[in-house]
Nucleic acid binder design. Sequence first.
DNA 1: GTGGCATAACTGGTAAGTCCAGTAAAAGTT
DNA 2: AACTTTTACTGGACTTACCAGTTATGCCAC
Lengths: 247, 247
Amino acid sequence: MKATDVTQKSSSISRQLFDKMLQRIHTGQWPVGKSIPGERVLMTEFGVSRISVRETLSMLRALGILDTSHGRRSVVRKMNAEIVGRLFPLLLTLEGEQTYEHVFEVRLAIESRTAYMAALNRSQDDVAELSQLLELLRKQTQETLEDSVKTDLRFHIRIAQATGNPIFPLLLDALGGFVTYVQELSCRGNPDRRTRAMQYHEAIFEAIRDQDAEHARGEMESHLRSSAGRFLSEGLIKAARATPLTG
Amino acid sequence: MKATDVTQKSSSISRQLFDKMLQRIHTGQWPVGKSIPGERVLMTEFGVSRISVRETLSMLRALGILDTSHGRRSVVRKMNAEIVGRLFPLLLTLEGEQTYEHVFEVRLAIESRTAYMAALNRSQDDVAELSQLLELLRKQTQETLEDSVKTDLRFHIRIAQATGNPIFPLLLDALGGFVTYVQELSCRGNPDRRTRAMQYHEAIFEAIRDQDAEHARGEMESHLRSSAGRFLSEGLIKAARATPLTG
DNA sequence: GTGGCATAACTGGTAAGTCCAGTAAAAGTT
DNA sequence: AACTTTTACTGGACTTACCAGTTATGCCAC
């Protein structure tokens, strides 16, 4: 019942081939980073037509498992969590109905922990880069709005990176497209808001730098909640349920 | 550059077609649940060969966006998180065992909040359904392992639904397909673990029912931490890696 | 009329052959 | 030895054809 497999009833050849090729990658017969045999070779090797081979390769390509370009042989992609992140925008858009409020709630859930974990796990490099981003942000706060919003997101993602868990920056990046859009709407015409957000950013940075995990989380939550709260109070988001974001 | 394109340089026809078809789904020109035109129609409509059409459809099929079966027209699937969930086993084999730990960390971030929010927002229906699931889980704890693991996940997802934010169950579902797999390995041969998990579930349920948000979050965190700790400390990860993903 | 059944008109799945256009390595030239 | 040209790959795309499920059509018996 649960369609957990792309391959369903193992009916069509291309679906079967999909499993076989996937297995070759799993077993290491087709090592990551190296190129697989050409399509003409594959069709004789598996005893199928080139159509079936190409359709199977299309599937693997769509999933980001293969890297194909004209004239060169397909290469098994370094499969990182990145591809999951690439699918999230698809999910979100296709599911529809997601309001920005929902995204903010998820962001709150994720980032309150990334701030916490980052404070515990951050390296010297993390601190240095965050410091740079903060300075850049400080400049841009008085200049271009679009740039500052982008840097803002980069700052948050950089914190997620500092956790050491690659899935966190991934999720954040996936949600980012939504966030930046709303953020621009919010700050347009209200420069003081940007300075207020700037203060939060500095507080978060200092807490992470000083490895004060609890404080980092608290500041992050306040920061996000004030952002979300602003949007909610202004009808920029389909507000609806009065969800207590208190934590 | 933007993480939204699975289609890279958009050079080849099939990649372009992919974007176009995806757009038709987004705009609602191809409504979810309904069937799209036949391949012969599509090739004239887009002015390409059937090869290109079929390769594009293969991509959409691989992502779980289309549901295709022989003799019938392809149907636009209600996009769910399965697609992402399917990729996690693959992720793990290609990226290494740390991924398990990473997934649990993300789960912890998300579920500690879903428990909290569910306690605040839960409706009577939520309580009723959770109660049912709990009872079902109680029975299955002494019976089939596979079923109980599935019900376990349903229980967690149901909590995420009770938050009112549709993204939470989505994320959980995506992570879940991956988690259940490991969970089975963990509990196999250790029935007492299942009873211990059962106690946690009951505590979480009661807290949500009584709208004790802080308590709900605490129990959830304890529950997940104990689970994650078990997996990580017992080398179940390597065992999982050695097992092929296709059922 | 209506029910059941064979047929025809769809649908997707697969195959073989052909050609084009990039890429990279082999062969030639300087 | 360094550069350029050729050649033998590679994937990308098209056409035609046929097979195999599915569904709608329509006929015939009741």
